[in-house]
Design a protein around this nucleic acid. Structure first.
Length: 620
RNA sequence: GGGGGCGUAGCUCAAUUGGUUAGAGUACCGGACUGUCGAUCCGGUGGUUGCGGGUUCGAUUCCCGUCGCCCUCGCCA
């Protein structure tokens, strides 16, 4: 961990800081941190404060590892050392893990054979002259070690102890540096940090809302924001021009490793812009954040894909660009094929695509390929055609259809060389993309091409505006209700609905969608038309978004923005599996806070005051 | 809402086909030790096997229910 610049605890008060110079430092207070002392402090008298991480007793000699946020320093308490205060040795003998102490002592350079090379402070040690106990600790429910030993349930219950562990300290520090860098970068680009309401209004569709009953409006409820979407657009109407917020968002849906009921977004919006303005700005912000927060240098520029292009090449709308292995269209080859499966799929209006896994032929046995086949079967594909490229042609399930010239043509089309493994799926386009998109990630992972220390970003633009909702049997927004269509002059959304594109874009890193935004509709007539097409009545529009629609009547500027998921970005940058490890106080997958025991019951008086009653069968 | 996994000492785990007094490491407590750095050595305390019920002569083990945690599908405009 790169230590943050430590405070100058021992710095003399500067000129003009009268109040500060009047303030006396208490004798127990630290002069340095536990990560700070080096050989250059040799022979200095210092004071350290911290937690006892470990203690080693040798009779008349005791070693303590003293820990704070900045590091660990070895303290030596020597019964026979000159200047050791009376009673100190007996005090230290009784101390144990996690006791909080102040140590007065002198910095000593260690002999060469006693240097601990694993620590930045390993060349020195603090020879104690006196030790003051600031706080005694009970034996903690689990040991505070770098390596996770306790299970997550216990760690969440005692989160304040888990947070003492270095991996979590590192996550908190880097996350804070990341957010600070983002703030600095946005501020330098003219963005205003503007707070929007936490107590706001429920809107239909979208995720379930968290609700807060109103005491003074009995029977009415606030909703916690799923995002500040409408308010940031209102900021644009207000002429604030450039808004941002590190915003907490709330969604009451079932959770996953990468989802918490409350999560943090970098939310921003800009006026008088088009896509490339937003993308350029965000790209610079992300680059600055990841560099300053995590020391990650992202290759620029981030490739920008059209949605259709991403789907065609990678089979998904969030391509992992850490490796190539694109989907290669073989439909025309397949049409002329003697292989009935290929030919048949094309005749039925389907497509055939393939992957070329470089040098993977040897790594996949018959059994390994059977597993891949089962994998794509689970994704809706009827089968997986495969071939290993040899110096003389191909072998495998489709070899007898691709002997001789047909085989040579296929190999050339796939850009393959001997030793490569070719994998094909023939089906309707949607199935092929889904199966091969996921297969690409699986095979790429098995070949070690998804290195967690490599970071590749991209943009995907021009998403479909609407998607068909099977259960509800109607069209709905693919992105959000305010995204503008690519063609502003569009008159009838009922025409060729599936192919209408919106000016929505996603930010993608290593195959994770980390942000989503769009150029918004800023003209009320068009907004009304979109709502009308989706069957949202003027009454419903009024009830839900009336104030936004009203606002546009008074001159809304063209504008657009994005929201980036902070928790996911930090987790990805740190190579953590889920986002709980980068959130100081997370909740379980049942949205329960094991430490605070929230949510909890409330008194009948509180309920009465709010004029609400619970219908729960098992209260509390 | 569906599927899967887990729950035994403070912690991490073990316990043969259902069998005798539920073990180990670690932590903790006591002792020895002046150069350790996950110190070492000796000794010790520590158990409602998540909870409730059932089958059985006998249940950590099998069955049912329930609670909690994790993963996942649905869901998250």
């Amino acid at each position: 961990m790169t230590p943050a610049a430590p405070h100058r605890w021992n710095a003399p008060a500067g000129a003009g800081t009268t109040a500060r110079s009047m303030k006396q430092r208490a004798t127990w207070q630290r002069t340095h941190t536990c990560g700070e002392l080096t050989i250059s402090h040799r022979d200095q008298a210092v004071v350290l404060n911290g937690w006892i991480e470990n203690h080693r007793h040798h009779g008349q000699l005791i070693f303590l590892d003293l820990r704070d946020r900045y590091g660990v320093t070895q303290v030596v308490v020597d019964q026979e050392a000159a200047g050791l205060a009376a009673g100190t040795f007996d005090t230290v003998r009784r101390l144990g893990a996690e006791d909080v102490i102040a140590v007065h002592g002198k910095v000593r350079a260690r002999d060469a054979d006693k240097v601990n090379k694993n620590r930045s402070t390993g060349a020195i040690e603090l020879v104690a002259t006196s030790v003051t106990v600031l706080s005694e600790a009970e034996t903690p429910p689990f040991e505070i070690l770098d390596k996770v030993e306790a299970n997550e349930e216990l760690r969440m219950q005692y989160r304040y102890l888990d947070l003492r562990r270095r991996p979590l300290q590192e996550a908190m520090q880097k996350r804070a540096r990341f957010v600070t860098a983002i703030r600095n970068h946005l501020a330098a680009n003219g963005f205003l940090d503007i707070e929007t309401p936490i107590l706001t209004k429920s809107t239909p569709e979208g995720a379930r809302d968290y609700l807060v009953p109103s005491r003074v409006h009995p029977g009415k409820f606030f909703a916690l924001p799923q995002s500040p979407q409408i308010f940031k657009q209102l900021c644009m109407v207000a002429g604030l021009d450039r808004y941002y917020q590190i915003a907490r968002c709330f969604r009451d849906e079932d959770l996953r490793a990468d989802r918490q009921p409350e999560f943090t977004q970098i939310d921003l919006e800009m006026s008088f812009v088009e896509e490339h303005d937003v993308l350029d700005l965000v790209e610079g912000t992300v680059v600055a954040g990841l560099r300053e927060g995590f020391g990650i240098d992202l290759p620029q520029p981030f490739p920008r894909f059209d949605y259709e292009e991403a789907m065609a090449q990678y089979g998904c709308d969030k391509p992992d660009l850490r490796f190539d292995m694109k989907l290669i269209d073989c439909t025309e080859l397949a049409r002329r094929s003697s292989f009935k499966v290929f030919q048949g799929a094309v005749e039925l209006g389907g497509i055939v695509k393939g992957l070329c896994a470089k040098g993977a032929a040897e790594q996949f046995s018959r059994k390994g390929i059977d597993e891949l086949t089962a994998f794509v079967n689970g994704l809706g594909a009827k089968g997986l055609a495969w071939a290993k490229v040899t110096p003389t042609g191909v072998e495998g399930s489709i070899a007898r259809f691709y002997a001789g010239e047909a085989g040579a043509e296929l190999i050339a089309h796939m850009g393959a060389v001997p030793g490569d493994l070719l994998l094909f799926v023939a089906d309707q386009k949607k199935v092929v993309h889904r199966a091969l998109g996921d297969l690409r990630l699986k095979v790429g992972g098995m070949l070690g091409l998804r290195d967690a220390s490599v970071f590749r970003c991209c943009w995907v633009l021009n998403f479909p505006m609407f998607e068909w909702h099977e259960e509800k049997a109607r069209w709905q927004f693919a992105h959000n209700p305010f995204s503008a269509p690519v063609d502003w002059s569009i008159d009838d959304f009922g025409q060729d609905t599936a192919n209408i594109r919106s000016r929505a874009y996603d930010f993608v890193m290593n195959g994770w969608e980390l942000g989503s935004g769009s150029i918004r509709i800023h003209r009320p007539a068009l907004q009304a038309k979109v709502f009308e097409f989706l069957g949202i009545t003027p009454e419903q529009q009024r009830a839900n978004f009336g104030f936004l629609l009203d606002a546009y009547k008074y001159g809304g500027p063209p504008h657009g923005g994005i929201a980036l998921g902070v928790d996911r970005m930090v987790a990805l940058a740190l190579g953590r599996e889920g986002i709980r490890d980068v959130i100081a106080f997370p909740k379980t997958s049942m949205a329960f806070d094991l430490m605070a025991e929230a949510p909890g019951g409330v008194s009948p008086e509180q309920m009465a005051e709010l004029q609400i009653a619970s219908t729960a069968k098992k209260p509390g």
